[in-house]
Design a protein around this nucleic acid. Structure first.
Length: 415
RNA sequence: GGAGAGGUACCCAAGUGGCUCAAGGGGACGGUUUGCUAAACCGUUAGUGUUCGUAAGGGCAGCGAGGGUUCGAAUCCCUCCCUCUCCGCCA
């Protein structure tokens, strides 16, 4: 949620952000008019409430007094109902307005206008025809898509044998690096979350078609551990001295992928269920810009340790996620596709999520404010798996194990 | 799933319709005393959200959440959530 005071004081600035995002302004305009109406009603109700409070005697009132007070009380009650419904729809619209963009966000119309910041690592050259990761994985018996569709349908995978081992090794390796070298605390949260948590990080109310919902309950399959880790602190007031809070978790993540028919239908790139190691930091507002850079480095360090070529891309105004104010994507090289594909997305949300989830900090002086949240994938495990086997494939159709993973896998080659 | 007991502020806790604009402890903070500490004593401890106001400063809300009854609700009624104990089932 963006600061309602900002909308009241400078609506044009907010309108401009929506234009830059190529985002419709309906919700904003509705909010502005409902908010005005709500505040007028609120003042009236409160002054009537004050009147009732001061006029109510401490002892049994006379019948005459009772009549007057009763009338006043009825009026308050009906006005309160109006106020409540105004407030509800006002809040609904407020929750549907995306975050303000960072001052330095590049402007653009689509993902084509994202800005490449730098490239890292050497793109491997092959003196044979490279195989796609799904062909490789199937020929090496690392994964079985047919069996997965038998039990779960399309866009699921069963990892087997060395495939399962490799996935587990990657998770283990990533968590080890983030906990021992980058200072994150490891967490194992539930993967079922309630709608309040999803609202806190911005998945609800707008994007429920992207989520799996458990029938007859208020439980949803979390699409990213960002939801769990960030919302651990909902309604908290954290002493500034305890910041930053840095958490990492491996979880399964679940996405409907509605509207992505025909996209990445083969392989491990786009599944309904995938593993991800997530990085989340809760920081003092002064620190968020610096911490985003640091967190990006933490994600990059995984790619560097695995010696996978990648590039850093800054998202432009039109491609930015709903809750994010500034985002860097990491894109890893896929030899078979001859292009870079997203493997991590690292964002600064400023106080947007903190406002929704009511996560605040308290300074030594006692001043309370919304803190900033930052998160990123460190990394998407399935995509790392896919990139790894493609980049490390050999002429014989086997896969060399990168040095960093040998302690976890105990073999030099997957055959 | 069945049966019971709970949820009050940083913590413990009193409080079954108006004498409570939530008692009393503990802790924390400030002070008196003191060579220093402790003890004792005195004081502060509702934080927060929201709204009005340039501000100073008002108002309103707030006893797990949401509704209701009432002139008036922590207290009565309804729905829901969470915690604990026992039973059943289960990895």
């Amino acid at each position: 949620m963006i600061d309602p005071a900002l909308i009241r004081e400078d609506p044009n600035r907010v309108r401009k952000h929506l234009v830059n995002r190529r985002f419709p302004a309906d919700a904003l305009e509705m909010f502005i008019s409902l908010d005005r109406e709500w505040r007028e009603e609120l003042q009236e109700v409160e002054s009537l409430q004050h009147k009732l409070k001061t006029a109510t005697p401490k002892r049994k009132p006379t019948d005459e007094e009772k009549g007057e007070l009763s009338e006043l009380s009825d009026m308050i009650q009906s006005k309160k109902r109006d106020l409540k419904s105004l407030e509800q729809s006002k809040n609904e619209y407020a929750l549907s307005i995306p975050n303000i963009l960072s001052h330095d966000t590049p402007l653009g119309d689509s993902d084509k206008d994202n800005v490449e910041i730098r490239k890292e690592g050497d793109i491997p050259t092959f003196d044979f025809n490279v195989q796609s990761h799904d062909a490789l994985a199937q020929s090496l018996n690392l994964v079985d898509f047919e069996k997965a569709s038998l039990i779960s349908g399309s866009r699921f995978a069963v990892l087997k044998g060395w495939g399962a081992r490799l996935e587990r090794a990657l998770i283990h390796f990533m968590l080890d690096m983030h906990t021992t070298s980058h200072g994150y605390e490891e967490c194992m949260p539930p993967v079922l979350v309630n709608s309040k948590a999803l609202q806190g990080t911005g998945q609800l109310p707008k994007f429920k078609e992207d989520l799996f919902h458990c029938a007859d309950t208020d439980l949803w399959l979390s699409p990213t551990a960002e939801v769990q880790l960030t919302n651990l602190y909902q309604n908290a007031v954290i002493p500034a001295g305890e910041l930053p809070i840095a958490l990492t978790a491996h979880t399964a993540c679940f996405r409907r992928e509605a509207g992505s028919y025909g996209k990445d239908v083969k392989g491990l790139i786009r599944l309904h269920q995938f593993n991800k190691v997530e990085l989340v930091q809760l920081v003092h507002p002064d620190q968020s810009e610096r911490v985003l850079t640091a967190l990006l480095t933490h994600a990059e360090n995984i790619l560097k340790a695995l010696a996978l070529p990648y590039r850093v891309v800054e998202l432009c105004s039109a491609d930015m996620g709903f809750s994010a104010g500034k985002t860097f994507d990491l894109e890893v090289w896929f030899p078979s596709q001859n292009c870079y594909r997203e493997i991590s997305s690292c964002s600064n949300f400023f106080d947007f999520q903190a406002r929704r989830a009511m996560i605040r900090y308290k300074d030594v002086g006692g001043a309370v404010g919304y803190l900033h949240t930052i998160n990123g994938s460190g990394l998407a495990v399935g995509r790392t798996f896919a990139a790894l086997i493609e980049n490390y494939q050999t002429k014989m159709g086997t896969v060399n194990v990168p040095g960093a993973l040998k302690p976890y896998l105990g073999v030099e080659t997957l055959t």
